[in-house]
């Protein structure tokens, strides 16, 4: 039973206020959002920060719903992934992790690296470029704007990593940082 206490200690040590592991659906997305909103309301988080956290959570959770590769169910379960929110004195950390096929890594990595080279104005241009030139949503219902939007809202680089799982898949981890000292915000 010690793992319960260990997990509890880890969560406190890592400043984790919410951890969800399992299947991701729109219903679960809504529940996780509602919990995080109530949590932030409970200690009166300023509205600017709350909106940014909410925004990045939505994109992160819906990315997992749409793009997490589900296979080898006996090992990984059905579309299993992890989503966490950490809160320190000066920032929120929105982290997610999900399995993806190895052959998707290079495109994803290039996209994320490119986004991280852009400044505020560059991100805005990139966003407008994608939305203007896309003919519609992808077969999975995405606009191809999620990561750009997260980078814009967070105003910090996207931190990511690919951990090999086996010959077919890797575990994609993403961390987005939102500073709690936003200019001009607040209630």
């Amino acid at each position: 039973m010690k793992y319960i206490y260990d997990l509890h200690k880890t969560m406190i040590a890592q400043n984790l206020i919410l951890v969800y592991e399992g299947e991701f659906t729109q219903e679960i997305t809504k529940s996780v959002l509602a919990m995080a909103e109530r949590n932030m309301d409970s200690f009166g988080e300023q509205s600017t920060v709350k909106r940014k956290v909410f925004n990045i959570m939505v994109e992160s959770l819906q990315n997992i719903c749409k793009h997490s590769d589900s296979f080898q169910q006996e090992i990984y379960g059905k579309n299993n992934a992890i989503f966490m929110i950490g809160k320190s004195d000066d920032a929120y950390l929105i982290t997610s992790g999900n399995p993806i096929l190895l052959d998707r890594i290079s495109d994803l990595e290039a996209k994320l690296k490119f986004i991280n080279t852009l400044d505020k104005n560059g991100l805005k241009m990139h966003y407008k470029d994608i939305i203007k030139n896309s003919t519609g949503l992808s077969s999975k219902g995405g606009a191809g704007l999620g990561f750009v939007d997260m980078a814009r809202k967070s105003e910090n680089p996207l931190v990511f990593d690919f951990e090999p799982i086996n010959n077919d898949i890797a575990f994609f981890s993403l961390k987005v940082v939102i500073s709690r000292s936003q200019e001009g915000g607040g209630e």
Binding site: R51, E59, A143, L145
Partner: peptide, 12 residues
């Protein structure tokens, strides 16, 4: 109050 990126394409 809030829209996701997929909605932004539809708003356009």
């Amino acid at each position: 109050e809030y829209f996701n990126t997929a909605s932004s394409k539809l708003i356009l």
